[in-house]
Design a binder for these strands. Structure first.
Length: 877
RNA sequence: GCGAGAGUGGCGGAACGGUAGACGCAGUCGACUCAAAAUCGACCGACGAAAGUCUUGUGGGUUCGAAUCCCUCCUCUCGCACCA
């Protein structure tokens, strides 16, 4: 077990992080090291580093520690490289957990949230992050959400927000709309009540207006992970096809045509039915005329809108008895079904079924015994014998059984079919998108109020600017289901700003994703009177490096990209893309432990004995060690960052997190790993401590002749500078750490050399000084503590110093070891001066005893020499 | 099913087409100690007494030379998925 840091009487000097870390944090704060200007005038290039801001749940977890450590390394490194850095922090403070706390424990959501923020801020401050805390804000502060209300009204004026009816997941017990991911097995996640599909009037932001641009611009996000771009591309879901109207054989209720979207107009002649979504208007007409149809529609409705639910469901349909005419075959008509697998939200909510060339249609046709006519012949297949059994043929081919399309290939047939539809005026080629408009209404209290007023005479009226912000009332009750804003006795009753008559406020609040869709822009000028100071944003935006979890790959990142465009088009911003660089970190995992009682145990509750068994600390009973998986409260495999910082300080967990593995992968938190990091902290500190008590040699590095040992150490130092720099640039933090271990090892090696060697003493100072500065992005407190020992008179903090430069002349080795291969196999090595002439190298290689033995009596066909690396002899026979 | 990524010692991992396994963790032995911790030193892929042979998921290919490039297959992880 690692010792605590309290130094004992006879112990070697130990780094007292408990005293040092708060001291350096105060020093950075007092000197304003991490303050940024809204519009800097220092002439430095800008660099905006941002980590996804946290939800104030009450305590930080290791995922936060990893996220903010990664960001801090980037911020500190870039600052040292001469950038003017913006590195802010705030709180994604609206959301359901606060309301749950209110319901369960009677705490007001605001009080609960602000208390959580206070304790989490203190935790983050103990980490020693180079944040500009003067820019901090919480989205639940009216100073923030009031600005958001202004933005919304601008979007409304620009036609980018609109109110319309939509199908939603409705929890009848909680009286609220649920997001898709809050519907579990068709039931509300909290109430357990079966979720209904309900049509409600909702606010939508028109993200679909930007679909083409959001898709096209993905190609330019070259500092985003490929997989995130792919996910967004899929989500936006562009497809090319045709829209066409099928006319009903006999119109009902004035409806004469059904619009259908298809990507396969070439297969029109293989049609065997038309299918409607259960929510389709024509399905409603059918339901009104036929109780059986109504029952089927009701059954589908009770299934919920969750795509996962639909997927699991069996394909079911109901024949309405209606028939439609074929666009190209006069006289031919086809049945109109209502089918549970047709999505109202995609395309037109109606499809034509071509079972031979679509798997879903085929399953449906087989179930209800509908015709299956192949119209596309696969390459090489025989028209007479080709048939479709249980697998539809969806590939390209040659058209058959298709009238004027016969003989064309699929692509030509698509064009010809579209032309045919266009000539008749019943269809056209269209581009369709999977992306839907963003429904932002939530029937909740703890969110940003949507700033509009509903008036019986004037309709929807925006809240006038001078009445903003619309502030949440504080006196709310959570004693019954539904939205407290709606139940509030007075809040919603207002006068219409237009006609002065009695009116009501909108009681819905915004989806919290709205809050996080522009916070990065607000950070540029967090106290501005307007939502965004355009001047500040022009300087700082876009975010140069955004860092966060992959779980936000689609929603948050797509919403933010949309919102940034919308803000550009409403005059608030000048950029379209919010995040020029994106880094997605891996999760933090840990072993899980389970006692004989079947209960999970926290890592802090167990102990690993010398014999490798793991026991319960309290009872001494053996516990079984389970899988390594993502830290979660339910598995109790979490480690509390605060406890770790209390025991080891902040630098140790920072170092361990960075050293363990590449940051994009999942890391495993282990006690041994942290303990190892702590040992290194102490070891490095001792290096500085030892040097600091020695005399400081003042020598002229230009004229002194360094000993071999000194030259070796200087080379190690400068190689470390170069290698660490390169690694940090590439986000290879684990490699940077490895190079720093090497430098520390090289210093330790040099310490064993003669103490009389003045040049070596100087080289050791240079090495330790470089080490102190190179660790500064990762272990900033230790770095300062070492530096001040080496430079007691310094006026500067490491946080204010430029990054060290490697001297290129010192990087080259005095001798290089070349591998000598015979027929590609390593047979020996030779030492040569760097860049030695080929002749000399080859001669030396041939003379190498083992090589000479193998070459004896053989004819050398080819001699390969890669300078400073390798020699390879190819021999005959 | 589709898409993306990954397979290297006991573990995490390193490696511009050029000495595979840097660095760390774990482990073994030793020094110091009454002892332990801490610290320091040595060892640490497999087989072999050694010379040496083998070794980066599998099988092939390109190359003087492949963890790295190309193809086949296998496994794992993540994401998406009735999108017409």
């Amino acid at each position: 077990m690692p010792a605590s840091a309290q130094a004992g009487g006879t112990e070697p000097p130990r780094y007292d992080f408990r005293e040092a870390e708060p001291r350096w944090q105060r020093a950075w704060d007092e000197r304003g090291c991490f303050r940024a200007e809204d519009v800097p005038t220092d002439g430095k290039p800008k660099y905006y580093v941002l980590e996804m801001f946290p939800y104030p749940s009450g305590k930080i977890h290791m995922g936060h520690v990893r996220n903010y450590t990664l960001g801090d390394v980037v911020a500190r490194y870039k600052r040292a490289r001469g950038y003017s850095v913006l590195h802010p922090m705030g709180w994604d403070a609206f959301g359901l957990p606060a309301e749950n706390a209110a319901r369960e424990r009677g705490v007001h959501p605001a009080a609960w949230t602000w208390e959580n923020i206070a304790s989490m801020r203190a935790e983050l401050q103990r980490m020693g992050l180079s944040l500009d805390w003067s820019r901090e804000f919480a989205t639940c502060d009216p100073a923030y959400y009031g600005q958001q209300q202004k933005l919304f009204l601008d979007l409304l004026r620009a036609g980018l927000a609109e109110r319309r009816d939509a199908w939603v997941n409705w929890d009848p017990v909680d009286g609220t709309v649920l997001a898709n991911e809050q519907v579990i097995d068709g039931r509300g996640w909290r109430s357990g009540a079966p979720v209904e599909k309900k049509r409600l009037s909702q606010w939508f932001l028109k993200i679909t207006d930007y679909a083409p641009d959001l898709l096209a611009a993905l190609g330019e996000l070259d500092r985003w992970p490929e997989r995130v771009r792919v996910m967004q591309e899929k989500w936006i879901g562009r497809s090319e096809g045709a829209r066409l109207g099928f006319s009903l054989a006999s119109p009902v209720d004035g409806i004469e045509r059904v619009e259908v979207y298809t990507t396969r107009p070439d297969t029109l002649f293989g049609m065997s039915f038309l299918a409607l979504a259960p929510e389709h208007p024509l399905a409603a007409v059918a339901a009104a005329r036929d109780p059986a149809a109504a029952a089927f529609v009701a059954e589908c409705r009770s299934m919920g809108t969750s795509e996962a639910v639909i997927e699991a469901a069996e394909k079911k349909g109901f024949d309405t008895g209606l028939r439609v005419r074929h666009p190209f075959l006069p006289g031919a008509t086809y049945p109109v079904w209502i089918a549970n697998f047709v999505l109202m939200e995609y395309g037109t909510g109606a499809i034509f079924g071509c079972p031979a060339h679509d798997q879903r249609d085929l399953e449906f046709a087989r179930k209800y015994d509908l015709s299956v006519l192949p119209v596309v012949l696969p390459p090489g297949a025989d028209a007479a014998s080709f048939q479709v059994d249980d697998e539809a043929y969806i590939g390209p081919g040659t058209l058959i059984n298709s009238g004027f399309l016969d003989g064309l290939d699929t692509d030509a047939a698509k064009r010809a079919a579209i032309d045919g539809l266009a000539r008749q005026g019943i269809g056209a080629g269209v581009t369709n998108w999977r992306l839907r408009d963003w429904g932002v209404s939530r029937q909740r209290y703890w969110g940003c109020p949507i700033p509009v007023i509903h008036c019986a005479t004037c309709g929807v009226v925006p809240v006038p600017d001078e009445q903003l912000p619309v502030v949440l009332p504080e006196d709310v009750a959570f004693d019954r289901p539904g939205n407290p804003l709606d139940h509030h006795p007075s809040w919603k009753h207002v006068h219409c700003p237009r006609c002065g008559g009695a009116a009501t406020r909108e009681t819905d609040t915004f989806d919290t994703f709205v809050d996080s869709s522009w916070y990065f822009a607000r950070f540029c000028s967090p106290r501005a009177e307007q939502p965004v100071s355009r001047e500040a944003a022009r300087h700082w935006m876009p975010v140069d490096q955004y860092i966060g979890g992959i779980e936000h790959a689609i929603l948050h990142l797509l919403y933010a990209r949309f919102f940034t465009r919308a803000l550009r088009d409403t005059g608030h911003l000048d950029v379209a893309e919010p995040f020029a660089g994106l880094f997605t970190q891996g999760m933090v995992t840990h072993e899980s432990y389970r006692g004989s009682d079947g209960q999970w145990r926290y890592p802090a509750e167990v102990e690993r004995r010398a014999d490798g068994t793991v026991v319960d600390r309290a009872t001494g009973e053996a516990v079984s060690v389970g899988r390594v998986e993502k830290m979660s409260k339910s598995r109790r495999n979490t480690v509390d960052p605060d406890a770790i910082i209390e025991r080891y300080g902040a630098d140790t967990p920072r170092w361990f997190i960075l050293s363990d593995n590449p940051p994009e992968r999942d890391m495993e938190w282990t006690e041994a790993g942290v303990a190892g990091a702590f040992r290194f902290v102490q070891r490095v500190f001792r290096l500085a401590e030892t040097l600091a008590v020695e005399t400081r040699p003042e020598i002229d590095t230009g004229s002194v002749s360094f000993s071999s040992a000194a030259r070796t150490l200087r080379r190690a130092t400068h190689r470390a500078i170069a290698a660490v720099t390169e690694a940090l640039e590439e986000f290879a933090f684990n490699v940077a750490v490895a190079r720093l271990y090497e430098l520390a090892n090289a210093i330790a090696d040099a310490e064993r050399e003669s103490a009389e060697d003045e040049g070596l003493a100087w080289a050791r100072r240079e090495a330790v000084d470089s080490l102190a500065r190179l660790i500064s992005p990762m272990m900033p407190h230790l770095s300062e503590e070492m530096y001040v020992r080496l430079h007691p008179d310094t006026a500067k903090l490491v946080a204010e110093l430029p990054w060290p430069d490697a001297d290129p002349s010192l990087l080259a080795a005095e001798a290089v070891t070349l591998a000598v291969q015979v027929m590609g196999k390593l047979r020996g090595t030779i030492e040569m001066p760097p860049d030695a002439a080929s002749d000399a190298v080859l001669a030396a290689a041939e003379a190498e005893p083992n090589v000479a033995k193998l070459l004896a009596g053989k004819r050398i066909i080819k001699r390969i020499h890669v300078p400073n690396r390798i020699v390879n002899f190819v021999i005959a026979g």
